[in-house]
Design a protein around this nucleic acid. Sequence first.
DNA 1: TAAAAAATTAGACGGTGTTCATTTTCTGCG
DNA 2: CGCAGAAAATGAACACCGTCTAATTTTTTA
Lengths: 195, 195
Amino acid sequence: MGRRSDHTREELHAMIVREGHRQLSEVGFARFSAREVAKQIGYSIGTIYNVMGSLDALMLAINGHTLDLWRAALEQRLEGQSENRLAQAIAAYFDFAAQHRNAWTALYDFRLPENETPPADYTARVTAITDVVVREVAAALPTGRRDQAQALARSLLATVHGHCFFAMNGTFRLLGETDPLAAALARVEDAVNAA
Amino acid sequence: MGRRSDHTREELHAMIVREGHRQLSEVGFARFSAREVAKQIGYSIGTIYNVMGSLDALMLAINGHTLDLWRAALEQRLEGQSENRLAQAIAAYFDFAAQHRNAWTALYDFRLPENETPPADYTARVTAITDVVVREVAAALPTGRRDQAQALARSLLATVHGHCFFAMNGTFRLLGETDPLAAALARVEDAVNAA
DNA sequence: TAAAAAATTAGACGGTGTTCATTTTCTGCG
DNA sequence: CGCAGAAAATGAACACCGTCTAATTTTTTA
């Protein structure tokens, strides 16, 4: 076959990413298959490669989509909130991971080969989420300490990530921690108070 | 063929795990292959399955071995140290991850299927590392706060893990953080001072 | 309407995990 | 020593996977 009148190349690209994200969410990174994506959208495996280039590129596009959803969820949660905004942001971090288990986990399961770097539009999505956190950390700091916001935000992001990761992968359950979110909030509070 | 006089079943098990760990360290989790392990030790693929039971079991054994090495490195680093022991432990955490990149990463890349739980001898290795941290956290706390050590140690482990993870996966480089270890140490200090 | 361009296909290739009937080797007993 | 049974090891078979590409089909263009 050739061109199909009902899908432009762009639309097809979007279809693949959306279906890929759907399947990734369903079966998880370990069982994800490009062939199955092709089957579900009614195209052949070859088309996936023509449109996406490679499995790595497909994964980057899917993870990019997850990052978009994550930032949207984060900003929606903060919208109109005037108190405890940093705590709200952290809770949103945890909520997104819990509600999008497989997609969130895949953000960290998937890695490009050693020599390659992610494309600019992917890293931009990562920094977009970071920027939200930087903004909220800055607001939580005393006015004289706002210049520390960027560095502190990076570190607090790592702190929250570590807690969320251990919550999701079972480590906290194993260690008897029953409220990972509270632990993360406590660590962030410690750091903000120290600044 | 049948029994080979030069290897007991136990020795063969150990051989497989050691060679598996070697290859995992070399090529990383994504490119790890049980078939290649078999080839390198001069046995057939079937034998790997006879001895280990499944690929999941093999991965658990290999990761268990990594955890053993990690705890040994941690304890060796602390041996004889009388000052800054908690900071030393954290530095050892980072050092091990850096020096055993692929093996360390595989600890988190590999996950059992949803319904299954890791065997007791695996979880014991995880808690063995945790116990070292609990001990050092307790020592760093004022005597009246020692009862918080366990809960705080869990949280600080997550904190350090988050920083180490972002250091290893490139997130910190992307965000401009040039000294992840220092950031982790600062967060731990904040938490200890707050207690 | 014919030629050029674009889109799509599907099969081939080399790899993977997994299973299991078969073969080989070892052990112990008569 | 010979032989039977147990233990160990094999490797072919199966169903997948990502990747590539020659061939085909459709659409667009001239």
